[in-house]
Design a protein around this nucleic acid. Structure first.
Lengths: 119, 119
DNA sequence: ATTTAGACTATCCAAAAGGTAAGTATAGAA
DNA sequence: TTCTATACTTACCTTTTGGATAGTCTAAAT
């Protein structure tokens, strides 16, 4: 039985475990944007097309709970909160880059026109 | 609008597109096992713990429709069908390897004991 | 006559993921 | 006094994903 339990969930493979950290529509685009510098909630929101408040909040919370990002609260009004990569989060960047490049290759292969942007 | 339509679906990023090819619980474990040689349905089934007939069938169909694997039918009874990687499928292998290694790293990080097996 | 093999298909269901829309708190600006 | 900014929360749905279970087809073996 090469499977294992962690945080109330059963995983069958390391791949599944990796995807629990990076998978879904939003986690990688968020992490990617934090690689340069810390960002505020609304900066991320403006920079990531289509994401809703709810999704952004929930994904940030998941990334934080898995230790990939830091959340720093500035006690001012209106509120200010900054998100940044942890060391663990930085380790994800090359993986994301690999997947992104693969995605671009697939897009090329499929003959789709797509602007080479940031994620 | 850096997003695009393809095959009746809307994608926002290359990452999403890549995950539509490799994402989910089963696609990468399946592809990984085809890298050495073609495999039959029941060989894959025995080699991939926990996968059900339905999941194996549906994932093989998806991989085939995206051009990552070939399906060869031998007209005998009982039926014999072999699955193998296409050139496009082979391009996915290094990506899967990267993700798998990352998964192992995360497992180490989390202090989980896990046997270094095949996917 | 029944069982077996191999590769499925068909239903039905439960859980997870993700989207819509509205509401909250606070202080300063208009 | 109403409005604005910021970072959320809550409730409610719909869609997608995945799991359980049973059934199908054919010919040969028992």
């Amino acid at each position: 039985m090469p499977e294992f339990f962690h945080d109330k969930r059963l995983y069958y493979t390391p791949i599944e475990f990796a995807l629990s950290h990076l998978g879904g529509t939003w986690k990688m685009p968020i992490l990617w944007r934090l690689q340069e510098k810390a960002q505020r909630f609304n900066e991320l929101k403006k920079d990531i097309p289509h994401i809703t408040d709810k999704m952004l909040t929930s994904q940030l919370r998941e990334l934080e709970s898995k230790g990939l990002i830091n959340r720093e609260i500035f006690p001012v009004i209106p509120p200010k909160v900054e998100y940044s990569l942890t060391k663990k989060g930085m380790k994800a960047i090359p993986i994301i880059e690999t997947i992104m490049k693969y995605g671009y290759d697939l897009i090329q292969d499929a003959g789709i026109e797509f602007p080479p942007k940031k994620a």
